[in-house]
Nucleic acid binder design. Structure first.
Lengths: 104, 104
DNA sequence: TGTTTATATGAATAAATGTTCATTTGTTTT
DNA sequence: AAAACAAATGAACATTTATTCATATAAACA
């Protein structure tokens, strides 16, 4: 029965892993994270930069916030978003390395 | 104009990154990779282990194969799949570490 | 207070993705 | 050659996810 519990935990971890990588599986979210690597930005800034509707950006920022990858700071009418996880850049860099190496 | 090219490349990379992480964003694929970490397995073995239809497994294996994460070896009527990318375990481990650390 | 501006949110819609079903292909066995 | 088995595949279907649209909330300012 110990084996079953072990197996269950492993299964659970697989689902969590998929959930985790899902966050990075959308190009809009990656592009947002990429912008925030450089500097804190407002929703409007991001929307303009990515040439997308404010609403679409807001929705994606919500997902990133819930995943604790970004944090918000309200200043007057603006919401300024910035990265909130020092691992993000490492993870993205890992992906970049893999893509580059694969290209060879 | 140099800046524009730079920006274009960056955009392209963001799409490629999303594509890359998308492979790991499905729990069936993660569970398959997790099984293959231990040993080479046939399609039927995997289907039985995951209690899923052979067809569903085949479809997912095709995606993993196209992404060069697994390789196939045909032996008689069976197709044996195994990992084909030494980075997979590292990437998955990175995700696991992140999940564990987040839990604190 | 009423108006404007920035952001957030719910619901509708659109698009992408995964699974199932039916069938085909490739291989072994009789 | 026919039957049996394993895997692959295309199409239909189901589910999930992202975007848009309409509207609400919240803050600033006239």
């Amino acid at each position: 029965m110990k084996r079953d519990i072990q197996k269950q935990n492993e299964e659970k971890l697989c689902f969590e892993l998929a959930e985790f990588f899902k966050i990075f599986s959308d190009s809009t979210r990656i592009r947002i994270l990429n912008l925030l690597k450089r500097q804190e930005l407002s929703v409007g800034d991001i929307a303009e930069e990515l040439k997308m509707h404010q609403s679409a950006i807001s929705h994606q920022l919500r997902i990133l916030k819930q995943s604790r990858l970004v944090k918000v700071r309200r200043e007057g009418k603006n919401s300024f978003y910035s990265l909130d996880d020092e691992h993000i850049e490492i993870i993205l860099q890992y992906g970049i390395d893999h893509i580059n190496e694969r290209g060879k």
